[in-house]
Design a protein around this nucleic acid. Structure first.
Lengths: 239, 239
DNA sequence: TGATATTTGTGCGTATGTATC
DNA sequence: AGATACATACGCACAAATATC
């Protein structure tokens, strides 16, 4: 009697995990169909599903109904701490960062935005919205709100620079740090799903934070919607 | 002519938000049905839905199809930092904490658990699984894994105490701190949905962390699944 | 247990005012 | 000024989940 101690599904999990770790299957690749895997491993499709489910739970792959199972665009550990610098974070993970601009405008703030920035509801704000990519895979949607009164030329600076830190520097703000971060999980709506190239109803990790200058005055209210399947936030106890 | 600048749905949102802020509607209360609200405000049901949608986006209410729209059991700001103490956190939010035990057992670790705790795959671990409640509303499912070799009597201690910190203290560990935290968003499976009393596919915020003693040796590998609709994690820059 | 009513979710179509090109 | 796109709002119908009896 072969009384194997490890369940079959676990050995399948190991097998597939190894293929990903070894680079045989890379970021974005589509796995063989469950039916094909079932034949290849000589098991029932349910057994394959169990293994794939465990891998999905680990964030290694993600399934799209009707499409297939795909290797998640790297476990993409995205560190957050007092300072959040998108490009540095992605590069530190050995990936190629990129940004797509979705919107750049000046408008009136929503009540929530006004409250976060501690400004009057009638003051104007700059709104910078875009898409963050790592290795050309969409990782997150971000929206940054700045007080227009304090940074009258920020829109032009963002227009040419596309980098928040640099643009703020050009407007006279040398340094800023995060004074609050709130995290919660949501479901992707149609718009978000389209941008992040995930299916509607997919899990989204929403991060909402306020950055302030050295005097503690808010300079940016930012919200970032991460694709839950593609991103893991890691907390740093940073300085 | 009444040339109101603000959309109707936004004023409805303000109106209902105020009722919650003022305590007229409290945690867990069911709002009037969309149809009733539509009559009360003299608008179409879609307009009410728009307002409710915005409030849901803010985490203020959550809808359950067929049941109604409910005031979210507080956006329950749940602070996380180097030390995580469940009861303290809930009490700090002015709510009544409680725990339900789901499982308490000793078994072999999964590869992931062994790696996190830096033990051999053949070593035994204690597994403590349960449900966290605030004001009798399920907030999160937690699973804590401890190295059995180091804490041989932990199971009994947990059995009578139901509090991790106290049980570990009884086993000779005075203090521990969090050395790593990883956060991601997932969808609730059937089991999780049942325990948290949310619908399957609802957003879940998963937190995975390792606690270590003062020498940096891992003593606990814990995973917590928060109901995304009921919890907001706030990062503390704590000491 | 099962049938029925209630309630939210989704889609279609229509109309109007406003901002943009 | 005209055309176009967009947000807002209304009305109706049905599907899906839930509650109730």
């Amino acid at each position: 009697m072969t009384k194997s101690k490890t369940p079959i599904w676990r050995s399948i999990q190991s097998s597939l995990t190894r293929e990903i770790a070894d680079g045989i299957l890379v970021s974005g690749d589509k796995l063989p169909t469950e039916a094909e895997l079932a034949i290849r491993f000589g098991v029932n499709r349910h057994t394959v599903r169990h293994a794939l489910g465990a891998m999905a739970e680990d964030g290694l792959v993600h399934a799209r109904r009707g499409a297939g199972v795909f290797v998640t665009g790297k476990p993409t550990d995205y560190p957050i701490g007092k300072r959040v610098r998108f490009h540095q974070n992605i590069r530190a993970a050995g990936q190629m960062p990129a940004k797509t601009r979705l919107q750049l405008a000046t408008r009136r703030p929503s009540p929530r935005e006004a409250k976060a920035l501690q400004i009057e509801p009638d003051d104007q704000v700059h709104c910078y919205e875009g898409l963050s990519l790592a290795d050309a895979v969409p990782i997150a949607i971000f929206r940054s709100i700045f007080p227009a009164e304090r940074f009258p030329d920020l829109l032009e600076a963002l227009d040419e620079l596309d980098a928040v830190t640099a643009a703020l520097k050009k407007c006279g703000l040398d340094d800023y740090t995060r004074i609050s971060t709130r995290l919660t999980a949501r479901l992707a709506d149609a718009t978000q799903a389209g941008h992040l190239r995930i299916s509607q109803g997919a899990p989204i990790l929403r991060s909402e934070g306020v950055n302030a200058d050295s005097d503690g005055v808010p300079v940016e209210y930012g919200t970032t919607w991460f694709s839950g399947d593609r991103v893991t936030l890691t907390l740093r106890d940073d300085a």
